[in-house]
Design a protein around this nucleic acid. Structure first.
Lengths: 126, 126
DNA sequence: TGTATTGTATGGTAAAACTCATACAATGGC
DNA sequence: GCCATTGTATGAGTTTTACCATACAATACA
């Protein structure tokens, strides 16, 4: 379920931006098939303990970008013809995050191999 | 030059967050060697047409994370890598950094697998 | 037809982000 | 010692984000 993969961090990044990015990435990954129904705005608001208006803003921008369609009374659905660039930004973002982590590691005297091992441990702990 | 790799987008992410992330990523890719001098806060502010205080906030957080050191009158410099056996808690530190990176990735909709793959790409690119 | 569901919209409040202007303080070079 | 450079700091004012409460409008369904 998509709701389980959503989580808001207090990084300085606005909540609606985080939400928009996470849903966009999930769609680009194919986690939800075209035509599939997204969780209700109210469901997301309750689950993440954020405001309905904040969710609405994220959903509205996803619709503006052509990723989802909103229909009052019915719900929100994945578009059947998603834009190509949906998947493009994911790799860029991942590379940027990896480089950031590498910088932190170097400053702490941690090698890339040790960081990789730590990531593997984290993955195993789930 | 680092300045050329900096660009601010109007995507809702606070400017100081974008700047901090981009500089950190550049350091992680090895764009600047340890000990190298960063562009002046004022240079960045002028080049990106943003406020000096905004740059200062980004630089300050990079210093708090140990990535750079700030010296009044001299400038900002990439911190030197500490000696390898300097600390006993290498593993704990690595785990902490990994968890941090994972949280950042999660906020951006990036999964552990994608982050690991990106880290492998970065390692290969050296 | 009625009614619950779901997206859409508005007004008010608080906090954060950003800019602008100005000033202070340490460093290095003349 | 003088002075330009560079980081550090403060305060005022505007914009953006987020929350809360409330209400409206379209859809689906018993």
């Amino acid at each position: 379920m998509l709701l389980d993969h959503l989580a808001i961090e207090s990084n300085g990044v606005p909540i609606y931006v985080q939400l928009r990015a996470q849903i966009a990435a999930a769609l680009g990954r194919g986690a939800l098939a075209p035509g599939a129904r997204l969780p209700t705005m109210r469901e997301v608001a309750v689950a993440l303990k954020i405001d309905l208006n904040t969710v609405q803003r994220a959903y509205a921008e996803l619709e503006r970008d052509g990723l989802i369609t909103l229909t009052r009374g019915r719900g929100s659905f994945v578009t059947h013809t998603p834009p190509r660039e949906a998947r493009a930004g994911v790799r860029e973002t991942a590379d940027r995050l990896a480089a950031q982590a590498a910088a932190q590691a170097r400053a702490a005297g941690i090698g890339l191999d040790e960081l990789t091992a730590a990531l593997a441990r984290l993955k195993a702990a789930r």
